[in-house]
Structure formats: structure tokens, C-alpha cells
């Protein structure tokens, strides 16, 4: 079972990240997924978050208790949600927007220049797909094939190709990070 929190500021596509992953998991990877999100004023600016539970069995409790993965795309979101990330958990952060301040040994940190990569592809709006690529590679919680299959309907048709490119770019970066950082014998992440 995975408990995942995506966070950033409203407008970065945080809710979309969880939607795409949840759809990929539940329609194409054959597992259960439950997604909840910040709603209302807090989703439109400020620290915004969405939560995703992934399980092999039917999910009852719909929220994260102790997230094993935190994706943080803004400093405010990092400051707010990092303390709640489980010990040994996976932190993926936007390296140009977030300066991690917590104990570097407590969680497994992965730095990702998501916005910069997205701008190289022509638009910073693709940063969330770069992030999802990186997230998929590092966690292995969802397959890349399922993620790509989930995109139609959740990104504009005319930008489908660009979004897939953004995903691949993030995925490649994620694989490199995963293989460079030795897996610690920590407990969180997959096993909760």
C-alpha cells in the first residue's frame, strides 16, 4: 500500500498529478486508488495538496495517515507537509523552488528541476508531467505505460505529445536519481 501526497501551490497541476496517477493505477494497473484533494480557496493559490492511496485491496480510509511519498513543488508546501512525511519516506522536490531544511538523513531526498525541464520543452505548464515521470521512476508505484495511457482526457489533446515528452524527461531523470542514490534500509515508502 502506498500513501502519497502531491503538494505545491494552486495552479501547478498538483490535483492533476494525483488524478492522472489514480486513473493510471485503477484503470490500467489493476489496483485500487482513492484520490482526495484540497478544495476551495486553498486549492487556488497557497499550499495546495492532493492525496492518493494505492492498494491491492479495496480502500476504506481515504486519506494518508503517514505519507510514504511527498512530492513538493513549492517551499510553502514543503514547509507545511515535510514534517508529516514518514521516516525513511521518499521526498521528491522542485530543486529551484524548494530549499529543504529538515534532517537530510530522515527521508530519501530526490531533487528535480521540474520547471526548468518543462521550460526546455516550451512551457512551464508541463512541470507536473515532468514530476510524474520522475515520481513513477523513483517509486515504481505505477507503470510508465499506465501513466501514458491515462493522459488522454486529462491533458488537452493538442498537448498530448508534449506531455508525454515531459513525462519521459522526468522518468529518465528519475531513473538516474534512483540508481545514483543507494536505497537505504529505511522502512517507509512501499511498506506501511
Amino acid at each position: 500500500m502506498w500513501e502519497i501526497k502531491f503538494s505545491g501551490f494552486g495552479g501547478q497541476g498538483i490535483v492533476r498529478c494525483a488524478l492522472i496517477t489514480g486513473k493510471a493505477i485503477s484503470l490500467y494497473d489493476g489496483k485500487f486508488a482513492t484520490m482526495t484533494q484540497s478544495f476551495g480557496p486553498e486549492a487556488r493559490g497557497g499550499a495546495c495538496q492532493s492525496q492518493l492511496i494505492i492498494s491491492e485491496t479495496r480502500i476504506a480510509y481515504p486519506y494518508c495517515t503517514v505519507p510514504g511519498v511527498l512530492v513538493a513543488l513549492s517551499q510553502e508546501a514543503y514547509d507545511k507537509y515535510e514534517p508529516g512525511l514518514g521516516d525513511g519516506g521518499i521526498l521528491i522536490y522542485e530543486e529551484d523552488l524548494v530549499k529543504p531544511s529538515g534532517d537530510p538523513q530522515r527521508v530519501r531526498r530526490y531533487a528535480l528541476p521540474a520547471t526548468r525541464f518543462a521550460e526546455e520543452l516550451g512551457n512551464r505548464l508541463f512541470a507536473n508531467l515532468v514530476t510524474l515521470g520522475c515520481f513513477s521512476a523513483i517509486t515504481g508505484a505505477v507503470t510508465a505505460e499506465a501513466m501514458k495511457k491515462a493522459l488522454p482526457g486529462l491533458v488537452p489533446d493538442r498537448f498530448l505529445k508534449k506531455n508525454i515528452q515531459a513525462f519521459d524527461k522526468g522518468y529518465e531523470h528519475g531513473l538516474a536519481l534512483r540508481d545514483a542514490v543507494p536505497a537505504e534500509p529505511a522502512t517507509a515508502g512501499a511498506a506501511q
Partner: peptide
């Protein structure tokens, strides 16, 4: 309720 209303599942 709001939770079920805004919760996404299959």
C-alpha cells in the same frame, strides 16, 4: 457528503 462528492475512485 463533501468527502464522497469530491473523492475520485474507479
Amino acid at each position: 457528503d463533501e468527502t464522497v462528492g469530491h473523492m475520485h475512485e474507479k
